[in-house]
Each structure stands twice: as C-alpha cells, then as structure tokens.
Amino acid sequence: MSEQEPYMEEEQEPSSARLILTLGIAGFISGLILVSVYLYTKPIIEKNKAEALKAAIFEVLPNTSTYQALGLMEDGLQVLGEAEDAPEWVIYEGFNGEGERTGFALPGAEPGYQDIISALIGYDGSDERIIGFKVLESKETPGLGDKIYKDEAFQLNFKALGTDPNVAVVKKGEKSKDNEVEAITGATISSNAIGRLINGSLEQWKSPIRAYLIRVRDSSGTPQEPAATRSTADSPTTSTEGGGGHAQSNNHAL
C-alpha cells in the first residue's frame, strides 16, 4: 500500500462532484446488494434458529412429542395463541404422546467467562426438579469452559437435580446433596455461571409455574387441551409456524 502513484501530478484533479457521485453510486449499489441478500437469507436464518430452539426443547424435556408456548402476562402464565404478539418472557410446556405434561423448558442467560451463556433448562413443575439442560449459545474457552456442553459427566448433573432451595455448585466428587452440581475441574467460572443461570431462571419462573399448575388443575382436572400453537415432533410445518413465531421473539429474552 506504500506505492507512490507515478501519475499523481500528471492528471487533473477530478471535481468534488465526481468524487461524491462515484462513492454515492458505489454505496447505492452496495446497499441494494446487501438488502437483497439480507431479505433472501433472513427467513432461512430465522428458521435455523427456530429449529435449534425446537430441538433443544425436545432434548431438555425427555419423552416430549409436542409443546406449546406460555407467555408471562400480568395475570400469570397464559397459553399463547398463534397470532398473538409474544410477550417478552416465554417458556415452553412439553407433553408426551398421551398428552401428559413432561415439564417446562425455561430459558436462562448469564455472563460466563467470555460472553453471555444462554441455555434452556428442562424443569419438572410438579416435582420441582431439573430434568434436562442444554447450552444454546456460549463463547467459553475451547477445551476448558466449553465442557459445560461437551462434557458428558457434567451433563449427567442435570438428569434429576433438586432445586430446593436452589442449585449449588460444588467441587468435583463432593456432591452429597440432591441439589448439588459437580463443577468441571479447570472450568470453575463457567460451572459457577451455569449455577447462577439456573438459579436466576428458577427464581423468575418457579412461582409463576406453581400458580399456573394450580390454575390448570383447578379448572379442568386433566391436563389442558392442546392449543392451536402446539407443535408436533413429526409435523415440521405446524411447528415452525407455531413455535417459530415465539422462538424468534424469545431469542432476545434469552
């Protein structure tokens, strides 16, 4: 880039108008290209995100075949209709093939060692236990902090984890109580972040879910009938329509 142009002096200075015009045209064309590529890729990118979320819901809630989105409204948790604008806080309620509730998928986010870790927590509302956990996004150190989602042993912590009064992170091999998570050796900060993430999410959702469960039981005695928003594992079209809308709006809540 250090080369001197030999023709610097020979040519006449182009007018400012020409310079501005050149850059204006360049910017305009560039803008057109970017807008068209953006519009072309946007639905695909959003579909990817919705599908990743959907896969995560089925993963953190074992035996789930359908789910519906619940939004936190002023009067507690409400089933979200398809056309409704999703509120800021959304969780997902999973059902198995017989229509029995398998649990709730709760989003959570917490700063880790590098950046915000966002995750989905599988929560059994009646037992008040954690039954699954999946990291959705994290930039933790490769080889150390990324074990929060790569290490099998760490994942086993979340198969059946008590939450009373909250979740505690302890050193590896020192787990003695039901609600304790064994940290990853060499990744204490990331492990502790997971603990805080779970506790933060539970603090927010535990009582709305309790209230919701009581309300549902009182009103029908049986689990709530499937709403229009329910998505099925085997029919991807309905699920993208139903889950997709909420999934997008959920992303910034994460």
Binding site: T22, V37, I44
Partner: peptide, 27 residues
C-alpha cells in the same frame, strides 16, 4: 474510480462482499 477516493471505494466493495458471505454462512 478516481484515485482520490479509491481506498474508500475498495472498502465499500470489500465490506459488501464480506456482509454477503456473513449472511450466506449464517443461513
């Protein structure tokens, strides 16, 4: 491209292609 604005023009061109590949990879 007039030589006075060439670097700016190059950056506009490069940035456009970078954003395009960014979107395509994400998709």
């Amino acid at each position: 491209i007039p030589k006075q604005v060439r670097i700016t023009a190059y950056i506009v061109i490069i940035a456009t292609f970078v954003t395009v590949i960014d979107f395509l990879l994400a998709a």
